[in-house]
Each structure stands twice: as structure tokens, then as C-alpha cells.
Design a binder for these strands. Structure first.
Lengths: 238, 238
DNA sequence: TACGACTGCCGTACACCGTACGAGAACGCA
DNA sequence: TGCGTTCTCGTACGGTGTACGGCAGTCGTA
């Protein structure tokens, strides 16, 4: 992968012209490939996805995929944006704070449903139509703050950065402590034991039951960031 | 990769016992391998790193690496933690807000120096000693807020989530708009043109010169998050 | 009806990958 | 001297992404 380097200027799928689709309905299609890719990724993870397996899953020869898709990287970019399509449109009648919480909660769930997201998100720019639609939604919602446009953009980027960073870390952790491994207890116990003397504060966290509640962690952080945005608006103190 | 699955319980390098090192100084060593890996990653990126090339770079046969390192995944985990070692210790005499800004600024620069970080960060839990030391530092610094311990942990996770999310996104963008491609202008121009009608608010961002200043973006976001934490302490309004 | 162009699928092949396995070299210690 | 340990490496296997060219079917036009 990554080699092809056909078009020296652009190589994101989203900036390439798509081959004109024909009249005849073919069994295979870009959409079918992407759907199958998402399913495969959800079940077996990124490392297990190969073009051959993907073709098998579709009942087709490996090279057939390359008519509809230029490269494996493109499949991953498309799959990434595909899942961002699961996020709904905002309701502009509600308070911006509630709407931000709703949208960002959906993003967090998205990461949990598709634990391979952080990995591919780290590899390609997230500029597909569905991802951009989410950015557009956030800007729309945050316009409700009354902040100047520049600040709306910045606040939007701030909130999204937090949520993506949080969800990515959460998913990595979950992937490690569940899976065909021993229950999380044992895994973290080993970790804690190894670091106990060197990093007392860090390891002490694991003794606090409150800190095992991921939902509360997320809500606290999101509330924090929202409160931070509110300080920029001269609005209610808390 | 990912197969090996030797130890059914643990497979992060950090939770495995390391082979006892011998007296004789061998030319190759785990440390040398990791150093070379970081260099190679910085220069050529993650996709270009293979065990064979790494061995060549060290003037050694490919399989020789496997005496010091169990797997390629381990090399990447080690390389990831290695670079987190570049971050210094906090100064506890200064105001916690300043210290948070200093530490997190260093993290951002870390990502810029090592653009492959988001990719590997998405693939492995970040539990090496240097990464944990950073977490410990953050908790120490945020203890200066006077918040209860649970909230200190949560605030720490919040700030780090934001910074990592921001830096990861920034790096992805930079990787795409620089590199052996046309200047960023052209790339983003194509993007904007493609989305102009569908996502007017999103695309309008690119007309605002303020939003091209990445440093200001970062500072705004970090200030926001810090201000959010301050609202939890009942401290100065702004 | 005939025929060329185009669409879509696929068989083969190449270069490269991670790494299992076991042979052997170099060394410490008896 | 011999033996055990540490370390390096050659070979080989099964997998990968995908370039290339062939081929069947369909369509538009004459």
C-alpha cells in the first residue's frame, strides 16, 4: 500500500474523480465493497483485513475489487467515512449544550461499535462527506453560542479533539482488557504491580471505583470542555 | 503481525518479562533497535518500516533482531514509548495552569516531530514507562488545583484527551498538505471546491486567515479546557 | 444483423512482508 | 578441554498488495 502514487497531486479517494458508473447493474459495486469491509473490520479487526479475504466474503476473485476501488487504502478511507454516516443531524431548536452532548455521545458510541476507527483515523485525513457533515453540524450547533465565527470554529475543533482523543484511548483500553484475554482484572493488576513504586499516583487511580465508570469519565470531560467554551461567551457561571 | 499470540494472557511488551541481559556487550541490543526504528519512522514513515529494512539499517541480518525483540509490534510499542521519553519533568513551583500548558505544548511538539505517532497510538495501549510518567506528571501538576483526587484524575484525562486528539488531527492534516505533493493551497482548494455548496460553514473556514494559525488554534483549545477545569475549582472567573 | 468499444471480472505473477526453525559461531566457566 | 549459554544468521513458508493482460458480456451504431 501507500506506493501506488499514481496521481502525484492528490491521493485521497475523496479528491479523485470517480470512474463513471455504467447503466448495467453489476453484482459488485463500490458500495457493496465498503459495506463488506466495515462488517469484516467490526468482526475481525484491521490487522485481519486483506483484499483477498474481502473478495472471498463477497464471493468474488480478489482482483475484481480493483475495478471499483483503486487501492486498499481507499477501501479504508471509504469505510471510515461510511461509519461516520451513522451520526444523525442536529436539532437546532434545542440548547447548544444539549445538542453538543448528544452529537458527541453519538461519536463516542461510534468508536465503540467500530474499534478499528482510531487506527485508520490515524492514517488518513478525515475528509469524507459524512465526516465533514459532522463538522458542519458542530459549527451550526455552536453558532448558538453567539460567539464570533472564528471562535465557533475553534470551539468546534476543541470539542471534537477532546471527544476523539477520549474515545480513541477508551477503545484501545477496552480492546486490550477484553478480547480473548483474561478478564481486565488480571491485566490491570499486572500493570499496577509493575508501576506501583515508580508511579504511585497513577497506579492509585485503579483503586478508585469511580474511575472505572467510563461513562462518568466521559461526561465529566465533556462537561468540562463545554464549561470552558461557556467561559468564552460570558454566559452562566455553572 | 498480531498473530504470534505466544502468551495467551499478556501481549504488550510492557507486561512480558524481559530476557535477562548478559554480561557480554553485543553489537545489537534492544535499545539500538528502538533508536534505529524511531529514526527510520521519522524519515520514512510507518508504512515504509519493515524488519528487513530495520536490520539493514543496523548492518545486521533480519532474523537477528528477533533475539532482542519478540515481534514487530513490540518494536512499535517500544518506539512509541521511547519518544514519550523526550518530555521533561514538571516544575511544581509554578502555577498549575502554566505547567499544564508547558507539558501539553511539549506533547504537541512531540507529535510534530514524530508524525507516525497517531498511527501507532491507535494500535497499542500507551502504557510504557515514559507515557505513564507523563500521566503521573499531569496528576501531580493538577493536584495543584485543590480538587479531590477523583476529579484530578478526570481532569487529567480530559486535558490529555484534548491534546492528543488535537495533535493527531493536526499531524494528519500536515502530512497530507505537505509531503511530495503540491503546496497545501492547491490541495485544500480542491477540497473546498468539492464541498462548497453542501457544507458552506465548513468550507467558509478556509477563507478565514485566523484559522490557518495552528498555534492559535491549539492555544485557544487548551485555554478553553483549562478554563473548564477552573470552573470545577471555584477559582477565578477568568 | 454485424461489429467495434466499453464494462466488468478474473488468472497469473512479482516483489515484499513477518517470522518459525534450526544450525552454528563466540564466549564464560568448569 | 569440554559444556552450556548467548547471540547471529540462512533458509523457507505462507501471506500480502496489486500490475498486467485476457476474456466474456453488453451496448450503440450502422
Amino acid at each position: 500500500m501507500v506506493d501506488k502514487a499514481r496521481d502525484p497531486v492528490f491521493d485521497s479517494v475523496w479528491l479523485a474523480e470517480r470512474k463513471p458508473s455504467s447503466a448495467q447493474a453489476s453484482p459488485l459495486s463500490r458500495e457493496a465493497i465498503v459495506t463488506a469491509a466495515v462488517e469484516a473490520l467490526d468482526v475481525d479487526g484491521l490487522a485481519a483485513l486483506s483484499m483477498r479475504k474481502l473478495a472471498t466474503r463477497l464471493g468474488v476473485a480478489p482482483m475484481s475489487l480493483y475495478w471499483h476501488v483503486p487501492t486498499k487504502d481507499a477501501v479504508l478511507e471509504l469505510a471510515m467515512d461510511e461509519v461516520f454516516g451513522e451520526i444523525g443531524a442536529p436539532d437546532l431548536d434545542r440548547a447548544w449544550t444539549d445538542e453538543v452532548r448528544k452529537l458527541m455521545g453519538q461519536v463516542r458510541l461510534l468508536f465503540q461499535r467500530h474499534p478499528w476507527l482510531p487506527q485508520v483515523l490515524g492514517s488518513y485525513p478525515n475528509i469524507g462527506p459524512n465526516a465533514v457533515a459532522l463538522a458542519e453540524s458542530m459549527i451550526t450547533v455552536l453558532s448558538g453560542t453567539g460567539l464570533p465565527v472564528v471562535e465557533v470554529s475553534r470551539a468546534s475543533s476543541t470539542v471534537i479533539s477532546f471527544v476523539v482523543g477520549f474515545a480513541a484511548s477508551e477503545v484501545r483500553w477496552a480492546e486490550e482488557t477484553t478480547a480473548p484475554r483474561r478478564p481486565d482484572q488480571e491485566w490491570t493488576a499486572a500493570l499496577v504491580e509493575r508501576y506501583r513504586e515508580r508511579f504511585p499516583l497513577f497506579t492509585a487511580q485503579f483503586d478508585l471505583p469511580e474511575l472505572w465508570e467510563a461513562d462518568a469519565q466521559f461526561d465529566y470531560g465533556l462537561d468540562c470542555v463545554i464549561a470552558g467554551v461557556e467561559t468564552r461567551t460570558g454566559q452562566p457561571r455553572r
